[in-house]
Structures are given as structure tokens and as C-alpha cells.
Design a binder for these strands. Structure first.
Lengths: 227, 227
DNA sequence: TCCTTTATATGATTTAAATCACATAACAAT
DNA sequence: ATTGTTATGTGATTTAAATCATATAAAGGA
């Protein structure tokens, strides 16, 4: 079922970078999907059927490793595109996507998206830039993984989450993650994440309420990174 | 000094994906630079002045971390493009590049490259795909860093190096790296790399001669990864 | 609401890998 | 060659973080 209220097409970068004549094609072919918290959007190994744009909500992109061991590769929020893995429709997805909270996504079939790329010269260009930026932050994470200790990686993750998802009125980062999810992102166990966040709390560098975390002393946290 | 022998322009993907009329522009504006082993091609923090295509040789892309601590982000070989970090010439390079062996590179000034992108619709497209693939392997490395032990990461690195650089007649992987360089790539210390490679050698899974390594039992090595 | 499941805190123990330490080997430079 | 420098192999020690083990606290379903 299509629900216009759940997705403002005009704010979407695909729409914005297409020539006006093409916009109706997108409008005619898009579909809106709604996912509950915890629901799978796509699974690694799946055939690539199309591309998703997040309208509302938060999503984690993750890869499996043995049973129950996960790595969260990245987080995505409204406006972000997920699932695209290059041209040639025989491609397989290399990661899964799961809704962290109730989310509505716009789906564009892969053939429509690929045609969009051909018809709108701007688009490949914008996408190229987008992937370059993503690559940059991924390379940065490799560096962090290689040389930072767990505490540093957790602090770095908290700062990234603040940047990415912003804060509510009380200063809490606007995303609710379990200790296990944080652990899967930084490459650690949930026990260690629990200990480290407890330590940061006791030092009043952060505070937490349920699954929400607020940053209290940004400066002190940043200093932990430079040691 | 320009030396045509050192770089076959016709084999370059930039050249191949440009409309014929544009090729002479590239030809007129390119420069060939030759680097000795260990020489710096560019340094992180540098202003982006142009793009390099490797004609001959091998290059490592690395980021600094404190004094003398390095992470090798990736390796590059002939045909690879290095140094491009997206449009907008005010961009700064986020990693350094150093020649692992004597290399010749073709340099294209950033403004020529950016115009090439605009004039040749194919190009942004090809680049987008290229960056998607790079992102994929970088994401894979994050997963490895998070969950594999050092031995696994070293084995994975050896298999990657074999894929990337090929082997000579005697089966040795066609790249010479120090233990420290391998360590910088897998995120470990050179002592640990030394110990692990010694262990693999004693099991006859690999053999080494100077700085060259040959894979003897591919199957056994692969099995180490699935444990 | 109670009850099951899932998440969290925290202690005790183990372990992989870093660090420290030194001897030897390979490589470069004079 | 001769000498200094950088790379390597290996042992001993330390340490950060995983694992094992429980207790408690939330969250979700019937």
C-alpha cells in the first residue's frame, strides 16, 4: 500500500538529481514499505531487487559471522540510500539491513534505478561522491579497529552516533541501541561495553537512561581519543 | 620529463571510458612521475592536486597514527587509480601513498579530471562502481578485524595479496613486504606476524625466501579461516 | 498481572596478543 | 670489505579483553 504521508519524495536525493521529466517515472514505480522495530529489510546473500531510501526511521547494516556473531557495518537514517551494490542486476547483497526502530522506506526496482542512472547524468556523479565519503569513514574505522583500544572505539562510536542521529531536548543521543549492538559495531563483547559505559558514567562523562545515552563531557571524551 | 614507454595510456581506464575527442586532452595534460622504492607519492593532509594512475609498480595507501604507527588501508597496483577523494578541489587527502617498489605513475591535474567527469558521462558511472567494490572489500576487512584472530587476518591477507599481485614462476606472491608492513595491514605487531608466519612455515602451509612468500597449501589455509 | 525471555551489571578466570628484551641476520652506505 | 642501520626470530612478562559464571533488572507476551 502506498502512503504518501510516510515518504516525502521531494526531499529525496534521487528525485532532486533527476531531470524534471523523469520524476514521474520514479513516482509511478516507487513503493513504500513499513518495517517494525527489529524487522529485516533485506538479508545478505539475497538477490539485489532494488534500492531503498529511508524516509523515516533508523536502520543498521550488518554482516553475519558464524552463529549469532554479527558485525554492524554502518547505521543509516532518513535520507540515506541502502542496498545498492553496483550495476548488473545479478549482484548479491553483501550485508543485511534491519530496522532499529519503526521505519518507512521507499523502494525503487533495480531496473528503474539503473535507467535513472543512465537518463540523469548528475546522478552517477552524486552517487560516486556519496560512496567516496562512505569509503573514507570506513577506512577510518579500519584504522580505529587496528590501533584503538575498546574504550577509544566506544567513545568514537558515541561521538559518531551523536553526529549521525542528533540529540533530543535533554541531550540524549536520538537512537536506542543495546549493549550488544554497540559491541557489534565496535568489535567487542557486550560485557566489555557494559563495563566501559559504566566507567564513563561513574566519571560523569556520559549519563544513561534506559537505552539512551547522553554525552556530558565532550572534551574529556575527546581527550580519551588522543591518548 | 614525459616518457611514453613508462605508461601505456591506451590501457588506462580513464582513456578507455572517454569519448575519442577527449583523449587528446588527457594526453596533453598528463604527466609521468617515477618513484623509487620507499618514496612518498602524496601525504595525508596534502591538498588534492590531481589523480594518479599506476602504470608500473606497487603502492601502499596508509594512514598515520601517532608516531611511527601506521595502518595500511589498501594496496594498489598497475591500472589502479589513487588519490581521488571526490569533487571540489578544496578537498584534502585522507591517506598517504608510498611506492613499495620502483613505480611510474601518470598524473592528471584535478581540474582536467573533473572536467573529464563532466564531459564523459560513462566515467562517473565507472568510478561509482569502482568505489562500490572498494567499499565492499573495506567492509569485509572491518568484519575481519572485529572477529578474526591475528592468524586468520594474516592468512586472509596472504590470500588477498596472492589475488591482487599474482605469483611468479616459483609460486611466490609477487610482492615483497616487511613483517612490519604486513602487521600494519592486519592490525598487529611485527613480532606477532613473525611468529605466525614461522608457525605456518613449520606446518608447510607456506614457504618464504627473503621477503617473498609462497602459498603451499591453499586448502589448509582456507580451513583456518572457517574455524 | 504473572511469567518467560532478553538485557544488563559485575566478579573471577583464562587467553591472545602486546610489550619488553636481546641475539642474529640482512641490507645499505661509506 | 667494514660498519652502521634496519629487519627478523624467539623467549619472558604483562595486559587488555574474552570467556565463564551469576544475579538482577527490564521488556514483551499470554
Amino acid at each position: 500500500m502506498k502512503d504518501q504521508k510516510l515518504y516525502k519524495l521531494s526531499e529525496n536525493f534521487l528525485y532532486q538529481n533527476c531531470v524534471p521529466e523523469w520524476r514521474s517515472v520514479i513516482d509511478d514505480n516507487r513503493e513504500i514499505f513499513v518495517f517494525k522495530k527489529g524487522e529485516t529489510i533485506f538479508r545478505e546473500g539475497d538477490q539485489l531487487k532494488g534500492v531503498y531510501f529511508i524516509g523515516e526511521g533508523k536502520v543498521k547494516i550488518h554482516q553475519r559471522w558464524e552463529v549469532e556473531k554479527n558485525v554492524i557495518v554502518r547505521f543509516a537514517r532518513n535520507g540515506d540510500m541502502i542496498g545498492y551494490r553496483g550495476m548488473g542486476s545479478k549482484k548479491k547483497l553483501t550485508a543485511s539491513a534491519t530496522a532499529i526502530e519503526a521505519s518507512s522506506l521507499m523502494f525503487i526496482p533495480i531496473n528503474i534505478f539503473e535507467t535513472s542512472l543512465k537518463v540523469n547524468p548528475q546522478l552517477a556523479y552524486i552517487l560516486m561522491d556519496l560512496y567516496i565519503n562512505e569509503l573514507e569513514s570506513t577506512e577510518r574505522r579500519i584504522r580505529n579497529m587496528a590501533h584503538m583500544d575498546v574504550k577509544g572505539r566506544i567513545v568514537e562510536a558515541l561521538l559518531m552516533l551523536k553526529e549521525c542521529f542528533g540529540m533530543d531536548e535533554q541531550g540524549f543521543i536520538d537512537i536506542k541501541l543495546t549493549k550488544q549492538e554497540i559491541a557489534s559495531y565496535v568489535g567487542a563483547t557486550y560485557e566489555t561495553v557494559s563495563r566501559v559505559t559504566m566507567e564513563l558514567e561513574s566519571k560523569k562523562y556520559i549519563k544513561s537512561k534506559g537505552k539512551s545515552i547522553a554525552i556530558l563531557k565532550l572534551k574529556s571524551l575527546r581527550e580519551l581519543l588522543t591518548l
